[in-house]
Simulated assay, not measured.
Amino acid sequence: MRICIFGAGAIGGYLGAKLAGAGADVSLVARGPHLEAIRSRGLTLIEDGQETTHRIRASDDPAELGPQDYVVVTLKAHSVPPVVGRMAPLLGAGSTVVSGVNGVPWWYFHKIGGPLEGTRLQSVDPGDVQWNGIGPDRVLGCVVYPAAEVSEPGVVRHIEGNRFSLGEPDGSKSDRALALSAALSAAGLKAPVRPKLRDEIWVKLWGNLSFNPISALTHATLDVLCTDPGTRAVARAMMLEAQVIAEKLGVTFPVDVERRIDGGAAVGAHRTSMLQDLEAGRPMEIDALVGSVQELGRLTQSPTPVIDTILALVRQRAQTAAAGL
């Protein structure tokens, strides 16, 4: 089984190092100083206070790596469409693309059934680049739970979590899903195959939709924005709007809004990924986490006044940040 991690940053690097440690045939697509460090010194993983270094084949040219059984995409959502063409050398006739990207996935309406079957989301796949270039039949869904960071080029520090939930768009327990689950489990990771992965997508999205943009606008950490009465109320309102949309799409939430917000508070003084990106001068995942929910609101005829307001504000914040303000 050949597995390529496309986007070997924090999460991709963590996954690649765990697979390499278990003897898997894994390769990495990376870039810049991180790639050079991996090539010269190997990929180092710091986990539970222990440091291990793995020699892993890595390149910024997918053509050097050849066709793969699985291509695990761990890029930020907005970074995927521009590199779809570069993925082509990795994709053979039987290759599976594992979509480990935050937010509403571009393949969401593939094999969902009902009147929205086959709907394409322009907020996350403008111009249908992924739908046409990868093809939804190749896709195996994945909800990523671990937190990690690249502490320096070639070094990934694991923070918490080790679950990568997998799921077919049609909910089946396919051979390809079970085979990847077994490979991830052999690497010491939790990799359940879920019949209703979209439910998990929404539970994670619930927090990302609200906590991320609020933190980018206020610079508050999770413990603060989830307990301050004002920002907690805004997050709750956004989540309730999203819940109406999701339930119209057949999603069942295993927890209520208050428990989900309390779970965010329990994480502590954590800076969300959107806030980290803002502070580092990187593009923020606005459309995948917030714009996509607005688009789904329009598709399901569900009003989203609070989501619309926060989306407008965080988009403007992105513009001012791009201007150096």
Rank of each mutant, 00 (worst) to 15 (best):
V71C: 08
A88F: 00
V80T: 11
I286W: 01
V193C: 13
A93W: 00
A246Q: 02
W202A: 03
D308P: 09
P305S: 12
D308F: 11
L240N: 11
Q294M: 12
M1V: 14
G324Y: 11
A187K: 03
Q122G: 14
G188P: 09
D25F: 11
D199R: 10
V155G: 05
M239L: 06
R259A: 15
W202D: 02
R317S: 13
L205D: 01
T53L: 08
E168D: 15
G133Q: 07
A177L: 10
W131M: 05
A321Y: 03
T53K: 00
E247T: 15
D277G: 11
L90P: 05
G264D: 06
I134P: 04
A182D: 14
E64N: 09
G264S: 15
A288P: 07
M284L: 08
V267Q: 13
S172V: 11
R39M: 05
A77N: 07
P195D: 15
A88R: 13
P254N: 00
V139C: 13
G264N: 12
V150D: 13
L19C: 11
A191F: 07
G135Y: 06
E295D: 11
L278S: 10
G113A: 13
D287Q: 14
R120M: 04
C142F: 06
T218N: 08
M274I: 04
T252F: 11
I3Y: 00
R39E: 14
V104R: 00
F211H: 05
E295F: 05
D69Q: 14
I245P: 00
D61M: 07
I11D: 10
Y145V: 07
A37R: 06
V80M: 05
R194L: 15
T119I: 05
R157L: 04
G161I: 05
S172D: 12
L296F: 06
S95V: 12
R315T: 14
R315A: 13
R236Y: 09
F6V: 14
T252N: 09
A63D: 12
W206A: 14
E152A: 15
G23Q: 07
G263V: 12
S99V: 02
G113D: 11
V124T: 10
L313V: 04
T52K: 13
L205Q: 04
R86I: 02
G42P: 05
G154W: 04
V83L: 06
P126Q: 09
P136M: 01
V26L: 11
R194K: 14
I46M: 09
R41N: 15
G16C: 07
V129S: 07
H158G: 12
G118N: 12
G13H: 02
N208H: 09
D128I: 04
E51Y: 00
A220R: 01
I310S: 05
W202F: 13
T44H: 01
G7Y: 01
G135P: 08
M1C: 04
I261E: 01
L184M: 15
T218C: 12
S165P: 01
L116N: 10
S151Q: 08
G250A: 10
